[in-house]
Measured scan of single mutants.
Amino acid sequence: MQIFVKTLTGKTITLEVEPSDTIENVKAKIQDKEGIPPDQQRLIFNGKQLEDGRTLSDYNIQKDSTLHLVLR
């Protein structure tokens, strides 16, 4: 499925993911596309910070959902 990740600069990254993917996996995909190390990434969905060990389906993230990427 496709999800979107919006950065603070207003750029939107499109990712191909599975609901069973962990947040860690998603961060690795963002690193592949953008070169941002996962330990600098914080992903936010519906105002909640997403934890590495959880999956997209844990957070009820579905296709065409938009996550927000904050760098630390």
Rank of each mutant, 00 (worst) to 15 (best):
E18I: 09
K33L: 11
K11M: 10
E34D: 02
G10H: 09
D64H: 13
K33S: 08
V17D: 01
Q31G: 10
G47Y: 11
Q40L: 12
R42L: 15
L43Q: 00
T7N: 10
I44N: 06
I3E: 00
P19D: 12
L50P: 01
K6S: 08
F4P: 03
P38G: 15
L67K: 01
K33D: 05
T66R: 09
N60W: 07
I61S: 01
N60T: 02
R54K: 02
D58Q: 12
P38T: 08
D58W: 10
I36D: 03
E34A: 10
S57N: 15
F45S: 05
I3D: 00
D64T: 11
R72H: 06
D58A: 15
G47V: 14
K33V: 09
V70D: 04
S20I: 11
G35N: 02
E24A: 08
K6V: 04
T14Y: 04
N46F: 13
I36M: 06
L69F: 02
T14P: 15
Q62V: 12
S65N: 05
K27V: 08
G10K: 12
K27D: 00
V26I: 13
F4W: 13
F4Q: 03
S65H: 05
T9A: 04
R54A: 08
V26F: 13
N25L: 09
Q2L: 09
E16T: 12
P19S: 04
R42W: 15
V17W: 02
L15M: 03
L71S: 04
Y59W: 10
K29A: 15
I30L: 06
N60E: 06
D58S: 15
M1S: 11
T7Q: 15
D32V: 12
E18R: 15
M1E: 07
L67R: 01
E34W: 03
G47M: 13
E16D: 09
I61A: 07
K11N: 12
H68W: 08
F4S: 02
K29L: 09
L50V: 07
K63F: 10
K63S: 12
K29R: 08
K11W: 07
Q49L: 14
K63N: 03
T9E: 09
H68K: 02
